Simulated assay, not measured.
Amino acid sequence: MKKIVIFASGSGSNAENIVLHFNKKGSANVVGIFTNNPNAKVLERAKYLNIPSEVFTRQELNEGEILEKLIQLQPDLIVLAGFLLKFPEPIVKAFPNKIVNIHPALLPNYGGKGMYGMNVHRAVFENKEKETGITIHYVNEHYDEGEFIFQKSVNIEDCKSAEEIAERNSVLEQLHFPEIIETLLT
């Protein structure tokens, strides 16, 4: 059975959705959820879903301790689902084309350092964009510059706030992220 490791920094709604998707399908197992945030709600979700979790520091991520743990787990895919730290180059090199990220915009627009979550949705709203969407891409050594795997757009002309845009994007994420992960694993 294929193994997935998820990295998340926040609520973990995408992480939970991925776990539930693969629990239902039976084609892969989430073998760990890693977070850099000891207060992240994803930890509660991991406990509820009976998935082992790991809290780590930026130093542990950058100095190889997390790489060692990943090598022990031997995941078929590493999924960044709302993970806010830049992934270190040694991990990217150790798992080529096995690390994917979801970004809440149509890259290359609204990507890069600091462009995550509500920061993206506020920028999209302030620029009066007519559409936005999601991008699922491979992770490389630069923020949001890896090869695109999938993009899906949504019309937001009638959205009256960044929060409404975030809700529309969340629907896309919940629908498409598990499906694309499944495709990558087969």
Rank of each mutant, 00 (worst) to 15 (best):
M1H: 07
I6N: 10
A8K: 11
G10N: 13
G12K: 04
A15C: 07
E16L: 02
E16W: 09
L20Y: 07
L20Q: 08
F22W: 05
N23Y: 08
G32C: 14
I33M: 13
F34W: 14
N36Q: 06
N36H: 14
N37I: 02
N39Q: 02
A46W: 08
I51T: 05
I51N: 06
E54W: 09
F56L: 09
L61M: 15
L61R: 06
N62Y: 15
L70F: 04
I71H: 04
Q72R: 15
L73D: 12
Q74Y: 09
Q74L: 12
L77K: 01
I78F: 12
P88V: 09
E89Y: 10
A94K: 14
N97L: 04
N97I: 00
K98D: 11
N101R: 13
K113E: 14
G114K: 11
Y116Q: 04
A123W: 00
V124F: 08
V124T: 10
E131I: 12
E131W: 15
T132W: 10
I136G: 08
H137R: 04
H137G: 11
N140W: 10
D144G: 12
E147Q: 13
F148P: 02
I149E: 09
Q151E: 12
S153R: 14
E157W: 13
A162T: 02
A166I: 08
E167M: 10
R168L: 09
E173N: 03
L175N: 02
H176I: 00
F177W: 01
F177T: 00
F177G: 00
P178E: 07
L184T: 02
T186K: 13
